[in-house]
Amino acid sequence: MERIPILKMGSFLLVTIQVDMHDQLAMNLQEDLTNRISATGARAVLIDISALDIVDSFIGRMLAGIAGMAKILDAKTVVVGMQPAVAITLVELGLSLDGIHTALNVDRGMALLRNSLELSDDEDLGAELANES
């Protein structure tokens, strides 16, 4: 079954959507991500959708759902790199994704997460090393 890879980096989880999202894929992602959050105890999730050109109401709702679930699991979610057309579509669909943080690119998204978790630039990597040793 087709899946979107979820990368773990320190206490962050990274998801990059680089294929066309279809409904099953989105549902799989939601399931995988919640499992990973609880398994790894990740405190933040970054979803990069800069390669996503088209969204429908289902995908929009899925994104909102993922953020909501992550929040309950005590992980902060930031969606980065949304295309103008996607933003307009979501607004027209009435999905303003109120609980979700957004950022222009991955750099800014990471900075936002670090700030809100009050980590220094290297601390997330440090946690990773500590886990491995």
């Binding site: 969606v79 980065v80 790199g81 949304m82 295309q83 103008p84 996607v86 933003a87 307009i88 979501l90 607004v91 027209e92 303003s96 994704l97 957004t102 950022a103 222009l104 690119n105 800014r108 998204g109």
Partner: peptide, 12 residues
């Protein structure tokens, strides 16, 4: 409001 929301979705 729509314009502002769309911009916010992009992270601005």
């Amino acid at each position: 409001i729509k314009t502002v929301t769309a911009a916010r979705l992009m992270g601005t």
